[in-house]
Design a protein around this nucleic acid. Sequence first.
DNA 1: CTTGGCACTCGGGTTCGGCGAGTGCCAGGC
DNA 2: GCCTGGCACTCGCCGAACCCGAGTGCCAAG
Lengths: 348, 348
Amino acid sequence: MGVSDDRRLAVLRAIVEDYVSTHEPVGSRALVERHRLGVSPATIRNDMAVLEEEGYIAQPHTSAGRIPTDKGYRLFVDRLANLKPMSPAERRAIQAFLDGAVDLDDVVDRTVRLLAQITRQAAVVQYPSLSRAAVRHVEVVPVGGRSALLVLITDTGRVEQRVVQVRSAGDLDALPEQLAALRDRVNAAVAGKRLKQAREELTAVVQASEPGQTAVAAEVVAALGECLTAGLEERVVIAGTANLVRSGADLSASLGSVLEALEEHVVLLRLVQEMAEEGVTDRGALSVRIGAENLHLGLPETSVVTSGYGEGEVLARLGVLGPTRMDYPTTMAAVRAVSRYVSRILSQ
Amino acid sequence: MGVSDDRRLAVLRAIVEDYVSTHEPVGSRALVERHRLGVSPATIRNDMAVLEEEGYIAQPHTSAGRIPTDKGYRLFVDRLANLKPMSPAERRAIQAFLDGAVDLDDVVDRTVRLLAQITRQAAVVQYPSLSRAAVRHVEVVPVGGRSALLVLITDTGRVEQRVVQVRSAGDLDALPEQLAALRDRVNAAVAGKRLKQAREELTAVVQASEPGQTAVAAEVVAALGECLTAGLEERVVIAGTANLVRSGADLSASLGSVLEALEEHVVLLRLVQEMAEEGVTDRGALSVRIGAENLHLGLPETSVVTSGYGEGEVLARLGVLGPTRMDYPTTMAAVRAVSRYVSRILSQ
DNA sequence: CTTGGCACTCGGGTTCGGCGAGTGCCAGGC
DNA sequence: GCCTGGCACTCGCCGAACCCGAGTGCCAAG
C-alpha cells in the first residue's frame, strides 16, 4: 500500500482500535460514527474493499464487519501506532514497586509480576544473559567429609553453586588446605574472564597443579566447569498466565497449547532469542511478533511484545504475551517503561 | 448412612465411577447395564432416592441422571475407593525419570513435572521444610570492595546466599581477615543448630566480637539473619497448569480463579499446610481435599490430593490438583507412588 | 472521487414441536 | 418386606423454520 492514501490508513487504524476495544467485527457505519472521518459509510466501504484486497483486513463471513489480519496489525504496529505514554501515577507505581528489590532474583521476580499486572497479560522476563558476564569470584567451601561447596559469582550479580564429592581425596584432614590453595589458583586464572573463556582456562589449572593433587583438582575443576556451563544457561520467568483466560474466550480454543508452550521454558527462550536477533519491529528496543509469526513455537493467535534491557548494553529481554488482538499502543508503552526502569535499577 | 446397606454403597461407587469417566449425569438404566448389580433399574431408583435424600448425589435438573456431590466424593474416597496400583512399566518410568536428578532443585523440578505428566493434572511440590533443618556451614566470601557474599548451607542440601555491603568497614584491606575470623566464630556458634535456634545464637556472636569490629559484625550478622529467615521460608513449585484447561470445559468457568490461585504461591502454601495439619483423609500419608473444602482458598470445583514425603520424617508435601470429578483411585495411587520414590531418593 | 439508494446475504436469536432419557409411584409377585 | 415391571409425567436437548438487522457491493447521480 502506498503512503498516498492517508484516509485508507486512517480507516485501518480505526478498524484496529475499534476491534481491539469491542472484540467484534466493525462495519462501515459504526466506523464513521465513532471516528470523525468526515466521509460517508459508502466511501469507507470502498476503502475497506481495497484494504481487504491488499490483505490488511478480512471478514469472518459475508455480510459481517471487518477484522484486522496479522498483516493489518503489522502495518498498524509499524507505522500507525502512537505509543500511549504512561501517566505519572503509573510511572511512580512502577518505580516504587521495583525500588524495593533487594536482589537480582528479586528484581526479576518483581518485574515479571509488575508487567503481568499492568498489562493484564502474561509476562516473560529473561534472566540477564551470562554469555557476556565475567567471573567475579570462585569460592570453594569444605563442608565436612569429602564434600565441598562450589560457589561461582558473576559480575551481573548471579550466583551459581554446586556440591561436589571429592572421591579421590587421600588425606581428609589435609583436604581443606588443598582446596583453599586450589581456590586461589583458580581465582587467579579466571577472575575477570568471561564465562566461556574461563571454562577454557580451567584445564591449564589442573595441569599446573602439584603432582599429588591433580586428581582432586580435576574433580573440583570438572564440577566448576559444570557450574560455568549452568551459569551460561539462559533462564526465563513467567507470570500472569491467569490473565490469558480472562482476556477473552476467543483465545480459549488455543489456550491449552499456549499454556503448554509457556511451561516449556525452552520454547520461550527460543522465542526471546529470535526476537533479539531479528528485531522484527524496532522502535527503540521494542520488538513485536504478531500472530502466525509465532506459530512455529506452538503459539497460535498470540502476539508478543518484548524489549531488550540491561545496564548499558542489552543483556536480556522482557516482555508480554497475549492474544493477537491486544492493545498494542498501551502494551508497548508499558513494556518500554518497565524495561527502562529495570535497566536503570540494574545499573546500580 | 449406615454400613448396613451394601448395595446402596455399591450404587454410589458406580455413580462416581461412571460420572468420572463419562462426565455426564448417570441414570438408573445405564447403571445396571454397565455394572452387574443384579437388580432392576427400579430398585436402583429407590436407592438413588435415598442417596439423594442423604446428600450424596444430586440431579442437575429434574428428570436427568444423578451426579455425585462433594459429600458423595468424600464417602467414595474415604471408604469406597480401591487405589489402582501402578503397572510395573509405570513404576519403572517413575524411577528412571527421578533417578537422573543431580540436585535438590533438580529432584523437585523433575518430581513436579512427572506428577503433572502421569496424572494429567496440575502438580504441586513443596520444598522440603527447613524448620527442622540444621545449619551445616556458613561461608563469608569477600568479593572486592565492601561487598561480601554470605552462603548458608543446610543439611537438607538447600543453599541460600546473599550479597552484603559492609558499609561500616574501616580498613578495607583488613576486611577479608576480619570476615574470615567472623565466619569461624559464626560457624562455631551455629553449626549443627536448627535454623530458628541459630538465628537466636547470632546476637551473642555480635556481642562477643572485638570492640573495633562490632559494627562490621553487626552488619554481616544482620544479613545472615535474613538469610536464615529466607531459608525458613517455604516454597512451592507447580507444573501442568495446561492440563487444567484440557481436563474438560466444565471447569473453564472457574479456570481463571484457579490459575490465579496457583500463581499465588502463598495460597498454595496455606493449602499444603492445612492439609498437613488436619490430614483430612489419611490413608497412609495421603490426604484429600474435595470441592468446597478448598473454596476459601479461591479454588472452586477443585480437588487436591497430597502426600507427605521426606527421608524418615515428613519434610514436605507433594500432590496434584484438578477438577472435583477427577479419577481419585488413579490419582491417589500416582501421588503415593511418586512420594515414595522421592522419599527414597532423598534418603541418599 | 464521493454519496445516497437499493437489493442481497447471511449469522444470530427466537419460537416451536418432537424425541428420549430419566424419574416417581404403584400394584403385584417372590 | 423387598424387588420388579408398568406407566404416566417432566424436562432438557435438538433441529427446523423463521425473522431481524447489520453489513455489503454495486450503481447512477452529484
